[in-house]
Simulated assay, not measured.
Amino acid sequence: MNGSPTVVDDVMTHRVVALRTGAAFKDIARTMREWGVSALPVLDDDGRVVGVVSEADLLPKEEYNEHDLGRHGQAGDTADVHKADAVTAGGLMSTPAVTVAPGVALARAARIMARTRVKRLPVVDREGFLKGIVSRSDLLKVFLRDDADIAEEVRREVVARLFGTHAEPLGVEVRDGVVTLTGRTHQTALIPLATHLARTVPGVVDVRCELTGPPRPPDLDLGLPDAHGSALA
C-alpha cells in the first residue's frame, strides 16, 4: 500500500497520558488542560484500560452543586448526581471503556466513534493494555494522501487485479480524492466490484464509474437476401 495509512496503528498517537482510578478531580482537570485534551483513559492497578474520563464526566460537579441537588436529584439524573459527588477518576469515569485494537481498519474505527458518539478511542492490545489513542482528526489524516499515489494504487490493486494487465487499458484519474474510472471492458460483471474496491482504497473520497461494455457489433444480417432471394426490409 506504499506506506499509506490503512489501520489504527498507522495514525494513532503512541505517547498518551493516562490516569489511575485514584486520580483526584482537580488533578484530572489540570491534566486535561496541560495536555490540551478533552478525555483521558483510566487504568487499573495492572495498567489495563477500565474506563475513560471526559469533560462531560466532570461537568456534573458544577451542574449539580449542593444548592441544586435537592431540586435536580431525581431518578432520571441519578448517574449525573453520582458523578457530581465523585472525587476520583474511578467514580467519574465512563465504563466499560470503548476501545479499539491497533490492527482495526480506519473505516471500522470511524464507525465505532460515530455509533458511540465519542471523539477518541483508547487503543489496546489483546490483554487490554494501553498502546495509544486515536482521535477523529487522526482518522482524517488518510484524506491528505496525494492524488497520484491513490491513482497508482487503484491501477495496481483494483484494475490490474480484476481485469488483468493484458486487457485493454482502463483509465484511472484522481482529483481531490475523487476517482474516475473510464474505458471499455468485456468483463462487465466486474464493473460494480471495481467501483466498490476503489472506494476502499485509503484516501478515496468518492468514485465515479464511467466503465462500459464493448461496442455493440453491427447487425451483419441487415440488408442481406433471405432464403427466397428477397432482401430484408
Rank of each mutant, 00 (worst) to 15 (best):
T212E: 04
A29D: 04
A198M: 09
T88P: 05
Q187G: 00
I28N: 02
G128Q: 05
D9F: 08
V17L: 13
K61R: 15
T195Y: 02
M32D: 05
S137H: 06
P96L: 13
L19H: 01
S94N: 14
L144Y: 13
V42E: 01
P202T: 09
C209H: 01
L170H: 00
V100F: 04
D27Q: 14
L19V: 04
A114H: 12
T180F: 11
V42L: 09
G47R: 05
L170K: 00
A101D: 05
R136D: 03
R115E: 15
R199M: 14
G90E: 11
T188K: 03
N65C: 15
M113A: 02
D77L: 14
D46Q: 12
P60N: 08
S137A: 13
C209T: 06
D125K: 07
T99H: 07
R175W: 11
V53R: 08
M1P: 08
L224V: 07
D45Y: 03
R20S: 14
P192S: 04
D221F: 08
A110H: 06
D176N: 15
R120L: 14
D226C: 07
V174D: 03
D176T: 09
G3I: 05
L197I: 01
M113W: 03
A160P: 02
V179R: 01
G47E: 06
T185A: 03
V11D: 00
I133S: 03
L43N: 00
F129N: 06
G73P: 06
R15M: 13
N2G: 12
S135N: 06
V104T: 13
A29S: 08
Q74N: 14
W35V: 13
I133Q: 05
L190V: 00
V158H: 02
D68G: 04
V172S: 00
G51E: 04
G132F: 12
P215L: 03
L19P: 00
A84D: 06
R117V: 11
V134H: 03
H14R: 13
V37G: 07
T6D: 07
L40A: 02
D85C: 13
P225R: 12
K26V: 14
V201Y: 05
T95N: 12
T95G: 11
A56H: 10
S137W: 09
V205G: 03
